[in-house]
Design a binder for these strands. Structure first.
Ligand SMILES: [Mn+2]
Ligand SMILES: [Mn+2]
Ligand SMILES: [Zn+2]
Ligand SMILES: [Zn+2]
Lengths: 152, 152
DNA sequence: ACCACTATTGAGACAATTTCTCAATAGCGA
DNA sequence: TCGCTATTGAGAAATTGTCTCAATAGTGGT
C-alpha cells in the first residue's frame, strides 16, 4: 500500500513522544488511510467494527486527535455539524468549495489563491504554512432551486 | 443610529413575507446591530435579558435565522464550536482569518482573492455571489507557543 | 376600540455530537 | 516475566441547537 511512509511516520511520532503503539491506533490509521473521501468519526468507528475490531468511540476520537497532531490527518467542518477527517498524503494539500445548502464538497488546487492566502497570512502575522481554506457558496443545483422557489 | 436603513429593511421584509412585527424581533435586531463583533446566540440572549427583555432561547435562534434569510446578518462557524453572528452594513462584506489554536479572528478585505474565489466558484458551477471565505491558520502567538513547547 | 384568527413565543424536553470519568487492560522498559 | 502506567471501553456528561405545544399577542376586519 502507498501509505507505508505515513504509517512509519506515525509510529515514529508515537515512539518519539513516548506514546504506545497499540492495536487500536494502527487499526484506525489503516482505516483512515484506506478511505479516500471525507469521513466522520462515526463512520470510521462503524467500519472498524465491521472489520471485527473491538474499539470504542472515545478511542476513535482520541486517536483522531493524535493523527491530526502528527500532521497525518486533517480535521475540519465542511458545512456539516460533524467534523470530517481525511488523511494527508505526502503533505499534498487542497482546498474546499462547500455548498452551504446541500453540503456538496468540491476539492480544488489553485496556486494563485494559495499564494494570495499566504500573503494575507503574512500580512496579519499568521503562519503561512498551516493554513486551511474554505469557500462556502451555493452549488449550481441549489442556486437553481432557490431561483425556482424564491426564498421561503 | 446608523442602522435605520437596515431596521426599515427588516420591517419591510417581515411585512412583505406576512410575518409579524414583534417586540422580540425588534429587540433582537437592535441588539445585534449594537454589537460590533462576532457574537453567539447565547451572548445575545444574555445581553437581552440584562436589558430587561423577556425573550427565550428558542426565539433568539428562530429570529437569527430570519435575519440571516433577510441578508441582514451573517451566520458562520469561525473555528469555534458555536455559530457566530454578525450584522451586515449596507452589504459590505469581508473575509476571515481564524486562528485554529486560540480562536482569534482577523477580518480582511482582499479584492484580489475575491476575484480568484469568484473564478473558482464559476469554474465549478458554484454561485460567485454567495461565497464566504475563511482561512484557518495559526496566529503569531500560537506559532511562537508551539515552537517553544513542540506539539503537546 | 374590540374581536377573532393564527403566527409567535416560552419553557423545557429532546437530539446530535463530542468529551469526560474511572476501573480494567495491555504496552513497554527493566 | 514483572510492574508501572498509558491507554482503553462503556457509559455518563457536556455542549449546542432544534422541537413541541399550550399560552400569548400581533393583525386585519368590524
Ligand atoms: Mn478534502
Ligand atoms: Mn466578521
Ligand atoms: Zn448544493
Ligand atoms: Zn492563536
Amino acid at each position: 500500500m502507498s501509505s507505508q511512509r505515513e504509517r512509519a511516520a506515525f509510529i515514529d511520532h508515537l515512539k518519539s513522544h513516548g506514546h504506545r503503539i497499540t492495536g487500536e491506533r494502527l487499526a484506525l490509521f489503516d482505516e483512515i488511510f484506506e478511505q479516500h473521501r471525507h469521513v466522520d468519526a462515526e463512520e470510521l468507528l462503524a467500519a472498524l467494527h465491521r472489520k471485527g475490531h473491538r474499539i470504542s468511540r472515545a478511542t476513535v476520537y482520541r486517536n483522531l486527535d493524535l493523527l491530526v497532531a502528527c500532521g497525518l490527518v486533517r480535521k475540519q467542518r465542511l458545512g456539516q455539524r460533524r467534523y470530517l477527517y481525511e488523511h494527508i498524503h505526502a503533505g499534498q494539500k487542497h482546498d474546499h468549495l462547500v455548498c452551504r445548502s446541500c453540503g456538496r464538497v468540491v476539492e480544488f488546487v489553485s496556486p494563485g489563491i494559495t499564494a494570495m492566502q499566504r500573503e494575507i497570512c503574512r500580512a496579519h502575522g499568521f503562519s503561512p504554512d498551516h493554513h486551511q481554506f474554505q469557500i462556502l457558496s451555493l452549488c449550481a443545483e441549489c442556486v437553481a432551486a432557490s431561483e425556482t422557489q424564491p426564498s421561503h
